[in-house]
């Protein structure tokens, strides 16, 4: 089953995402900021990265930019978890190399539908 990296500084949001995906059979690793996500992404390769935008230490956009410079993350889907109000952030994330986004709030069903969509 596909391996997914969930990056969010909010434990509840990360917990919800990880729990939902694990329940659906995915293998999930968690990271609470962009820096830790980069470390985790070095030690193991993921098929999908879900990342919050606003995080301390390193935000999601800087994380995507860095991840896309790595050959092994070319073409790997990276989705930003953003809020409705953050339309600029969507585009900023895209410019940094994100594949797309998932708009908060989302419920477990929406999350799974989107993940299935990108993982095929």
């Amino acid at each position: 089953m596909a391996k997914i990296l969930a990056v969010d500084d909010s434990a509840s949001m990360r917990g919800m995402v990880a729990f939902t995906l694990r329940s659906a059979g995915y293998e999930v690793a968690e990271a609470e900021n962009g820096q830790l996500a980069l470390d985790t992404a070095s030690s193991s390769r993921f098929d999908l990265v879900l990342a919050d935008v606003n995080m301390p230490v390193m935000d999601g956009i800087s994380m995507v930019r860095e991840l896309r410079t790595r050959a092994e993350y070319k073409g790997v889907p990276i989705l930003m978890l953003t809020t409705e109000s953050n339309t600029d952030k969507k585009m900023e994330g895209k410019a940094a190399g994100a594949t797309g986004w998932l708009v908060k709030p989302f419920d477990p069903e929406q999350l799974l539908a989107t993940v299935k969509r990108v993982l095929g």
């Binding site: 909010s10 949001m13 919800m16 919050d52 606003n54 809020t83 908060k104």
Partner: peptide
């Protein structure tokens, strides 16, 4: 974070 979480939960 609170906004995102409160909407989600």
């Amino acid at each position: 974070s609170i906004k995102g979480g409160s909407a989600t939960f």
